[in-house]
Structure formats: C-alpha cells, structure tokens
C-alpha cells in the first residue's frame, strides 16, 4: 500500500502535502519544539488498541507527559470521564478548528494561541477537510495526525500503515516523551 497517498484514494489535495512521520523521533521532536500544542480527539479512537491497550489510554499518557491539553469532540468525552480524565474542553472538531484559524484567539485558557494541533480519531474525510481549512487559513498552526492512515493536508502525518506498525510508532512517541 502506498505510504503517502490519501487513504481515500480520490481525495487528492494539491501541491502541498503532509510530511511523513516515519519514526517516532520526528513526531517527538515536533511536539517538543511546539510552545503551545493542543490535541483534538474524535470518537474514532474507541475502535483502536495500541499493543493491547486502548488507544485512549495511550493518548491520556501522551497528554499528561507532554502537557498537551485535550479537546474532546462528539461523544469521546464519555470515554475520558470513564477514566477519570478531564479533557481541557469539550468542543466540536469544527468549532475548535475554526478558532485555531483566529490568530487573535488566546486559547482555551486565555493565555496564548496554539502553534501545534494534533488530530486523531475523526472521520477520515471530515479530518481531511478540517486539516485543509487549517492548512490554508491558519498559517501559524502546524498540524499533525496520529491516525494510522495518511492525511495529506496535515503538516505531518503517519503513512498508511498496518495497525501493528502504527501502534509501535505511537507507543514509541509516548515512551520518548518520558525521557
């Protein structure tokens, strides 16, 4: 399977395409470099495990270790609450993404705008279009996706991967952040 083709075959954007996260170190470096990262988590995460653990637990670990606030969209919040983890905000993916296009917006805590937005778990085409909106209209925000498929409109994306390879990479990112 080609690594850097849109997962949905026909959804080809244009000249500017996401760089591949081929190694956990790449994502790790981007996260470390970001001053104000944020993570937007959609309902699709419920379907996935990372080497035997639910993906959501992996994301909670990541959030805690890297101090990345989580915005929970749709009904994902219930899963977080079940784990006694309180997301920074409950907002629709559309709403939070729209705010990211506003350079004047000072973030959920009213302090400063975000410079890195990590997306995971949205329906593929919805995430595709939202990332396109940010690519064109949020020049100050880099975007990254943690899904197991390639999202060309992000700044960085995993390649189209097997679940096994993707899970290993994701686990590596979280482990690296412990260092």
């Amino acid at each position: 399977m080609p690594m850097n083709e849109s997962w949905q075959t026909a959804e080809i954007p244009g000249p500017k395409k996401a760089s591949l996260i081929m190694k956990p170190d790449i994502a790790d470096a981007m996260i470390r470099r970001a001053k104000r990262p944020i993570m937007i988590v959609g309902h699709g995460i419920i379907e996935y495990d990372v080497e035997g653990r639910p993906l959501i637990d992996c994301l909670i670990d990541l959030s805690r270790k890297a101090k990345i606030p989580i915005v929970s969209s749709a009904s994902t919040n219930k899963e977080f609450l079940a784990r006694e983890f309180e997301p920074a905000a409950i907002m629709s993916a559309i709403d939070i993404s729209y705010r990211l296009t506003d350079p004047e917006w000072k973030g959920l805590d009213g302090k400063e705008s975000y410079d890195l937005a990590i997306f995971v778990g949205l329906p593929y085409s919805m995430e595709w279009t939202i990332l396109s909106g940010l690519k064109h209209f949020a020049p100050g925000v880099k975007t990254m996706t943690f899904d197991c498929v390639y999202q060309p409109n992000a700044s960085w994306s995993f390649p189209n991967s097997t679940i096994k390879d993707w899970a290993a990479s994701l686990k590596g990112i979280v482990e690296n952040l412990e260092d």
Binding site: S97, T101, S132, H136
Partner: peptide
Amino acid sequence: PFYLPFCDL
C-alpha cells in the same frame, strides 16, 4: 465562513 477547501487548485 470557515472555509474547508476540497482542492488546493
């Protein structure tokens, strides 16, 4: 409007 371009071109 929050634009979500379906194509860059």
